[in-house]
Design a protein around this nucleic acid. Structure first.
Lengths: 206, 206
DNA sequence: ACCTGAACACCGTTCAAGT
DNA sequence: ACCTGAACACCGTTCAAGT
């Protein structure tokens, strides 16, 4: 007995629900079929296979991340604010990060902030290849940071750390390295440091 | 009929071979058993399960990444050189990156360069928490960059890119953004920019 | 202490067959 | 055009049984 009007939309909706509630590893073709009340094979007719299902889901989620309204008075601060917004939005969709990584679609995560970054970099006076490089540098930094963050957060039970690092007679440094990282703070510091250098007047190096 | 003296070492060696030759997704318990000439279940006696097998493999590989000998005359250039070495070594073990990510062991990839980074940051005059933050910032940046890089390289067929980005009347910028990224160059630029800011004399901000 | 095969509970995907 | 069940070729893991 056939089911009434299964659509690609409905499949994507249900898949998104499944991922949202139980994580991307719960998104199996069979569970999805059960949730939809169809045969597994019906799904294949509409979406091709699991990989393109994930791709479609990633595209949809990224498209729904919304606008980026920078805040701050200086170009550096405005870029930092864009970076913070992107990080926050991505972290609000932890499953997206996992799906993107599983499917090799990291680049997708660059897009939502690109427009805003281009504008700010341009406002700061950068042009042409140099402006493009600055945009890319920030994109790589933010997405890279988020990937690392997410990964350490789902890490297994804290391993002994085996810190063989000698601190050259700086106990405060040794202690700081032994403490857990304040990721929010590290993120802002890093992006600001990177951006400050990138926006400096040309001729600094080379 | 039992097989002669299966050891944990031998299992790890064969697993490493399998990963090296066919990638981490080829490392299934069953294929490994076939390669070893044992029953699948024997492996479980020695290594517990697939996850701890991967953990052991990651630990071994990271430990084998070797020493880091910075080059360059200024602290910034020496840190950039450490970053380049780490990136190169990690990229020489693409499967390691995948395994680390699968198991949430990103932090492991921080360790090989930590000693060298601490030394250089110290030599540059940073102390205590500020030095630790600089080390962390570089570690996050390098590992994050490598994760993003690896991910885009195994990306599916180039998607239309759908560049809605307007370039504010800067055609050179638009062209640069449309071109593929020179990752090596972007990496060095980014690390140098980050490091320059981090090593600047304190008091710059806050 | 170490190894075995059988079994369980899963996967994604294909394919011929239905309507 | 769309849906179906059966089947294929896999997985990781457990467990009782062997030596």
């Amino acid at each position: 007995m056939a089911r009434a009007s299964l659509t690609r939309e409905e499949i994507l909706d249900t898949a998104a629900d499944l991922v949202k509630q139980h994580g991307p590893e719960a998104l199996t073709m069979r569970k999805l079929a059960a949730e939809l009340g169809t045969a597994v094979t019906s799904i294949y007719w509409h979406v091709g296979n699991r990989e393109s299902l994930l791709d479609a889901l990633v595209r949809r989620t990224v498209a729904g991340l919304g606008e980026f309204r920078p805040a701050g008075r200086t170009p550096v601060e405005r870029i930092v604010s864009v970076a913070r917004i992107l990080r926050r939005r991505l972290r609000d969709h932890p499953h997206l990060i996992a799906m993107v990584h599983e499917r090799g679609l990291t680049e997708r995560m660059f897009l939502p902030a690109q427009q805003a970054l281009v504008r700010e970099v341009h406002a700061a006076g950068l042009r042409g290849a140099r402006a493009a490089e600055a945009v890319r540098a920030v994109q790589f930094q933010v997405v890279g940071f988020v990937l690392v963050e997410r990964n350490r957060e789902r890490a297994p039970a804290q391993q002994p750390a085996e810190e063989t690092t000698t601190a050259y007679g700086d106990p405060a440094l040794a202690r700081a390295l032994a403490r857990p990282v304040n990721q929010e703070r590290l993120f802002v510091t890093s992006v600001r440091a990177l951006t400050q250098s990138l926006l400096e007047s040309p001729g600094g190096n080379k």
